[in-house]
């Protein structure tokens, strides 16, 4: 079945609609000096589709890019120079983690977890973030107590 292709197939109208949706997020992020241009957003949406395809996932809307932008705009490690690049990396990490945590963590909670690690133990390093989140996912799958702590929001157990 060509389901992923169908979901990700971008006719111009959908690309424009999604771009408009993400552009609205600039209203919130510009107070932190972070703004995405229409072209940057379009590039991100195209990357997102490739990432989803690579990870064997389908998505019904564009909410993840929007949420990542809204949550990470206050990070001390993001400025307008690395904003788009970081968001692109973060969306790849996000879908990777959705798979690795077997879809058991909600989008919002997962974005919060990624943010905690990024700003905290990883000090804004995307490389370190990937490795730490890998450990997180491994523990999440194998350790029932840890999994419970994640759902209950016991952040001190994550380190």
């Amino acid at each position: 079945m060509l389901l992923p292709q169908f979901f990700q197939s971008l006719d111009i109208s959908i690309l424009e609609k999604y771009t408009d949706e993400v552009l609205k997020v600039n209203e919130k992020t510009k107070q932190y000096g972070l703004v995405l241009t229409s072209n940057e957003i379009k590039d991100m949406i195209i990357s997102r589709n490739q990432i989803l395809y690579n990870y064997g996932r389908v998505e019904t809307d564009i909410s993840v890019i929007k949420e990542l932008a809204e949550v990470f705009c206050t990070s001390p490690y993001i400025d307008n120079k690395n904003y788009q690049l970081t968001l692109n990396e973060l969306q790849e990490i996000f879908y990777y983690m959705k798979n690795e945590t077997e879809d058991r963590i909600s989008d919002s909670q997962l974005v919060d977890i990624i943010r905690e690690y990024f700003d905290g133990v990883c000090g804004g390093s995307l490389e370190l973030l990937k490795s730490k989140l890998d450990e997180f996912a491994q523990r999440f799958r194998s350790d029932v107590r840890f999994r419970k702590s994640v759902f209950e929001g016991d952040e001190h157990l994550w380190d």
Partner: peptide, 29 residues
């Protein structure tokens, strides 16, 4: 049909996730 699928995915994830694995989506479809 894709609209129905999108709605079903939203119900399936209890609106907690905007994406699911293609395998699950195909099962729902």
């Amino acid at each position: 049909l894709m609209q129905i699928l999108k709605e079903s995915i939203r119900r399936y994830t209890r609106e907690e996730s905007s994406s699911i694995s293609s395998d699950v989506a195909e099962e729902i479809l």
